[in-house]
Design a protein around this nucleic acid. Structure first.
Lengths: 212, 212
DNA sequence: CCATTTCTTTGTCGATCAGCAAAGAAATAG
DNA sequence: CTATTTCTTTGCTGATCGACAAAGAAATGG
């Protein structure tokens, strides 16, 4: 059996990983085909033959990012005994990844296409959908926490999920601005300081809004 | 006296404002000179004669953004009676601006150049410095709060300032993902729910870290 | 061996990029 | 009026953009 024709002269997975790192570092639109050929070590024609287009390559790179960087935080979220510990661990694992000197700082899904030309609006929507998975998974974990008794019923879980997702996105920006692991950990500690209040019977808005 | 030579045929302030809106919407690198000539209503040669270069124009646009969008939050921060109210109001005013349908969503300083080519690293540093002013002003307000007695002495004001700045940056991303004013308000409420704990005698890290 | 298939190399495509030179237009100074 | 100054319009520059066509190279099938 085997493969017909001339075999591929490069490692597809490795080349994709190099492309991911380049997109992660410079963003989608600011990464040129010349950048990619240099990073991947192959000619542009090989990229088109193997990945279809720059946009196709980017989408595959995002999926690789999700599979490699996103899996562990999600696992922690689900495996932890309580919703609080799950979200806390997910944030801390992400902090480790964001500040890992072996990879570009921050989160690729957050940083690589927040702005751009109207021609690439579809790509930005694609990334926005990926970003929406975070508060969605947080929310689901909180629901489970209510069922299992570690989260107070009546908690505004939509608000809590959106809040911690927002902190995570802010951490991605902080990483780009030079924040290291310990700095991000401190920020997470601050965010977790809200937990008890947020999961008390009264909702977050009714508890704080009247004061100002 | 008056001016010598042919007078300028366009309103410089208005043209700059149009440029600001375009950069704000699409980011620095993704805004082409063609986009700018269309938005500003003048030819590229006029832009170069009046603003020097695309980068110069962008820097001026950022300063206009700071003067128009950044002044009010800063004023609220300083004018409020307590540090808590000051930071809360600064966040809420920013939420209003981020979600204002009359301007692009989110914060120009956060969104317009988080990634890019190595050639524009200087511009990104410029924006990073502007971003650093936010936690810096929060920190100064917290210091004043300690002096005036509305913030508990011993509070880790660096951590608290970094935390609320991070939430603000996350809100900028949330705006891009479609979050409206009320959604942002809810997130602010959640962030403020941490205040009492964060300004209690024990530091944030010592209060929460041992639990996980 | 030869035919077929698949990948790589080389070269190049038209479009667009930021930027500017030169000429024309509109004001003031004398 | 003419001379000078300044801005606008027009048209262009070399570089770079993403993308691909054509030819050469390396494998399998028969």
């Amino acid at each position: 059996m085997a493969e017909r024709g001339r075999p591929r002269g490069f490692d597809r997975d490795l080349a994709l990983r190099q492309a991911m790192l380049t997109f992660w570092e410079h963003g989608y639109e600011s990464t040129s085909m010349a950048d990619l050929t240099a990073a991947m070590g192959i000619a542009s024609a090989s990229i088109y033959a193997c990945f279809g287009s720059k946009e196709h390559l980017f989408r595959e790179a995002v999926e690789l990012y999700g599979a490699t960087q996103g899996a562990e935080p999600l696992r922690c979220l689900e495996a932890s005994a309580t919703a609080r510990e799950g979200i806390a661990r997910a944030l801390r694992v992400n902090a480790d990844r964001f500040a890992d000197p072996a990879t570009p700082p921050g989160c690729m899904v957050v940083l690589s296409a927040l702005t751009g030309t109207t021609a690439n609006a579809g790509l930005r929507d694609f990334l926005a959908e990926r970003r929406a998975l975070v508060p969605w998974s947080f929310r689901r974990r909180l629901e489970r926490g209510i069922e299992e008794g570690d989260v107070t019923p009546g908690t505004d879980i939509d608000a809590v999920a959106a809040f911690y997702a927002t902190v995570l996105q802010g951490m991605a920006v902080q990483s780009r601005d030079g924040a290291g692991r310990t700095r991000l950990e401190t920020i997470i500690d601050c965010a977790l300081a809200a937990w008890t209040t947020l999961t008390s019977p009264r909702t977050a808005s009714s508890a704080t809004a009247p004061q100002e």
